[in-house]
């Protein structure tokens, strides 16, 4: 058996996961892409464990541990996503900008119309949450 085929499959699957994490907007789809990346790592671990014929089965045991950690991660991640949805009525990671630096000029210039509308909503929420910072109104941030 060639070791190069499972590792190439693993590398491609990891890249697909990277694309999903970066390109998706829905938080649950981001979590799905994270699961793809974790599975790529699992495939690599199993392949090298079988390849080296580890007497302690370290790779396969670590794969089981990774699966357990992935289950814990997906449970906590979904709980956080549902909490965000309950508080904000939105699960788009692009629109959760309360912690972002909204005053950067390139962020205000590069925003599309619908994104700037969403960003204004985030600014309004940030202003309501922080209260003491002078958050500019939406008319000033729009180009």
């Amino acid at each position: 058996m060639h070791i190069v085929y499972p590792t190439i499959v693993s590398a491609l699957l990891f890249s697909v996961g990277v694309y999903g994490v970066l390109a998706r907007r829905n938080a649950i789809l981001v979590l799905m892409a994270v699961e793809l990346m974790l599975n790529a790592v699992n495939l690599n671990l199993v392949a090298f464990d079988v390849w080296w014929r580890d007497r302690l089965h370290g790779g396969q045991v670590l794969t089981l541990f990774t699966i357990v950690i992935a289950a814990a991660e997906i449970g906590l991640g979904l709980a956080i996503v549902l909490l965000v949805y309950r508080n904000r009525d939105v699960v788009d990671v692009d629109r959760l900008r309360t912690l972002a630096e909204d005053r950067t000029p390139e962020g205000a210039a590069a925003g599309e119309p619908e994104q700037s509308a969403g960003r204004d909503g985030g600014e309004a929420e940030a202003g309501r949450g922080a209260g003491r910072e002078a958050v500019p109104p939406g008319g000033e941030a729009a180009p």
């Binding site: 890249s15 697909v16 990277v18 694309y19 970066l22 390109a23 998706r24 907007r25 829905n26 789809l29 788009d92 990671v93 692009d94 599309e112 619908e114 994104q115």
Partner: peptide, 15 residues
Amino acid sequence: DVDSGNRLLALAVAA
């Protein structure tokens, strides 16, 4: 709106 605006950048990073 399931994809964000930086799809090309994500594609470049993934490639």
